[in-house]
Simulated scan of single mutants.
Amino acid sequence: MLARIYNQAQEHLVEVQTDGAAKAVQIAPKPSGFGSSVNGGELLLLALATCFCNDLYREASKRKLSLTSVEVVVSGEFGAEGEAGTNFTYQTRVVSDAPAADIEDLIRYTDRVAEVHNTLRRGASITLLP
């Protein structure tokens, strides 16, 4: 997996890739034309929301549960420059004709196996390469 950004005046190109399958993500540049109009904190929260949403569908399929819709709302706080984010929380709303107990079990299980969540919970090593 990889993510790539290329930025110059009024041009902001974003690409993500898994197993060689590249996808463009449309994100506008800042009004100044340099940098991204979406900040990294917002994208981190979006990564958590996306992971949980996708994993709910994945785990529901394994259990042969049909989900009508999923909503995931993630929040967090970022302070001064250089400070790590804090107070990450999320909520989900799942609409399904499955029994409520089955959906609650699905949500709790998915919380335990969501890969992006577990990466952050365990701490990630991030290395700047030359």
Rank of each mutant, 00 (worst) to 15 (best):
E15Q: 13
E15R: 14
V16G: 13
V16A: 05
V16S: 04
Q17Y: 15
D19N: 10
D19C: 11
G20F: 07
K23Y: 14
A24R: 15
Q26H: 09
I27Q: 04
A28G: 09
A28F: 06
P29F: 15
K30F: 08
S32T: 03
S32N: 13
F34S: 12
S36D: 03
S37M: 06
S37V: 03
V38D: 02
G40M: 00
G41R: 00
E42F: 07
L44N: 07
L44P: 00
L45S: 10
L46N: 04
A47L: 02
A49Q: 05
A49V: 04
A49K: 08
T50A: 09
C51K: 08
C51P: 01
F52W: 03
F52Y: 09
F52V: 02
F52T: 05
C53A: 15
C53T: 10
C53L: 07
N54G: 11
N54K: 01
D55T: 12
D55K: 07
R58T: 00
R58I: 11
R58H: 10
A60W: 00
S61F: 10
S61I: 00
K62T: 08
R63W: 09
K64T: 01
K64Q: 10
K64L: 06
L65P: 04
L65F: 00
S66N: 12
S66R: 08
L67N: 05
T68Y: 14
S69P: 03
E71R: 13
V74D: 00
V74A: 06
G76Q: 01
E77G: 01
E77K: 12
F78Y: 13
G79S: 12
G79L: 01
A80N: 09
E81S: 12
G82Y: 08
G85P: 14
G85M: 03
T86L: 03
T86K: 04
T86N: 00
N87V: 02
F88H: 03
F88N: 05
T89K: 04
T89S: 08
Y90R: 15
Y90W: 10
Q91K: 08
V94K: 00
V94R: 06
V95I: 09
V95A: 07
S96N: 08
S96Q: 06
D97K: 11
D97V: 14
A98W: 12
A98F: 13
A98H: 10
A98C: 06
P99A: 10
P99I: 12
A100E: 15
D102T: 08
I103Q: 04
I103Y: 08
E104S: 14
E104I: 13
D105T: 14
D105S: 11
L106T: 05
L106I: 02
I107T: 02
R108N: 15
R108Q: 15
Y109L: 12
Y109A: 07
T110D: 06
T110Y: 09
D111F: 14
R112S: 03
R112Y: 00
A114C: 13
E115K: 10
E115I: 10
V116N: 00
N118S: 00
T119L: 06
T119S: 12
T119C: 14
T119D: 02
L120W: 00
L120E: 02
L120G: 03
L120S: 01
R121H: 05
